Amino acid sequence: MTDRQPYRVVARHPGFELRRYPAHLVAEMQVEASFTRAPLEAFRPLAAYLGGANRARHPAGLTTPVMPEATGTEKIPMTVPVVQEEGERPGAYLVQFVMPANSTAATLPEPVDPRVRIREIPAQLAAAMRFSGRWTEQAFGQRATALGRAVTAARLQPTGAIRYARFDSPWKPWFLRRNEVVLPVVE
Rank of each mutant, 00 (worst) to 15 (best):
E110K: 15
R89S: 14
R19N: 09
M1Q: 14
A42S: 02
L156H: 10
A70F: 11
R12L: 07
Q84W: 09
L40G: 13
G72K: 01
V10P: 07
A92R: 13
Q30A: 13
G148D: 04
A106G: 03
T73A: 14
R115F: 06
R19V: 09
T36V: 15
V66P: 06
R20L: 12
L108W: 01
G160W: 01
L18P: 06
V95Q: 10
R163F: 05
R115W: 07
V112P: 02
V9P: 00
P6R: 12
Q30T: 15
G91T: 03
T145D: 14
E32K: 15
Q96S: 15
L50Q: 02
V186G: 12
A33H: 03
V182F: 06
A126T: 04
P6N: 05
P122R: 07
A105F: 06
V26S: 02
P173W: 09
M29F: 04
T36C: 11
E88F: 06
P109G: 11
P65F: 09
P111V: 05
R163V: 07
V26K: 02
L94G: 04
A70K: 14
T145K: 14
T2Y: 11
G141Q: 08
V182E: 09
F97I: 06
F131E: 01
V83M: 08
L183H: 05
L156N: 02
L46C: 03
A105K: 11
A126K: 07
A48D: 14
P158S: 10
V83H: 03
P22R: 05
R20Y: 04
A53D: 13
V181L: 01
P90C: 03
R4H: 15
G87T: 05
H13F: 12
Q30M: 13
F16H: 08
N54S: 01
F131I: 06
V186P: 05
L94Q: 11
P122K: 01
M1W: 12
A47W: 06
V9L: 08
Y21C: 03
A23W: 10
A126Y: 03
